[in-house]
Amino acid sequence: MAKVIIALGNDISTDDIYPGRYMATVLPTETPQFAFADRTDFNARLKAREFPAGSIIVGGENFGCGSSREQACSTLKGYEVVVVAKSISRIFLQNSINLGLKVVLCPALEASEGDELDLTDDTVINRTTGKQFAQVQMPAARKGIMDAGGLIPYTRALLKVRR
């Protein structure tokens, strides 16, 4: 079981998650400080780190829309959170898988800040409200990258075979 530490609405853009003016910062060790930099309450909550790994950020539809900046994934990964959203924009979803940020697609999700969620293999159970929602499974192709531990080890393995 894990707690929802931040709950967001629809169309949360990568500018929201990681404002463009911090894009010259690229190292995954340095990007987390700028997570939701323009939403000072979220930024402060994350930086305080008063939550265990696996805590949840809930998103609505089209989470991570906008830019291809990978910092929007590494900034969240730095806090070891899980993103559970109704739908996720294509590039953000692929970047998350490539970098190993855990994301869960759950189209009918209803969850508020403070709710306790159980993430099973195919459902999200909201223990606070007692409701249960189905997950959308990742395509098999994406699972391969996730199982390899991200795109870097996945590519490294291919490189040895094919170069």
Binding site: I91, R142, L159
Partner: peptide
Amino acid sequence: FGIGATEMASVWSLGYAVNIE
């Protein structure tokens, strides 16, 4: 189409994009 930096690193390495639906 747009991709992230890690996916580009993979393309620079392999010359193809992996797992394109």
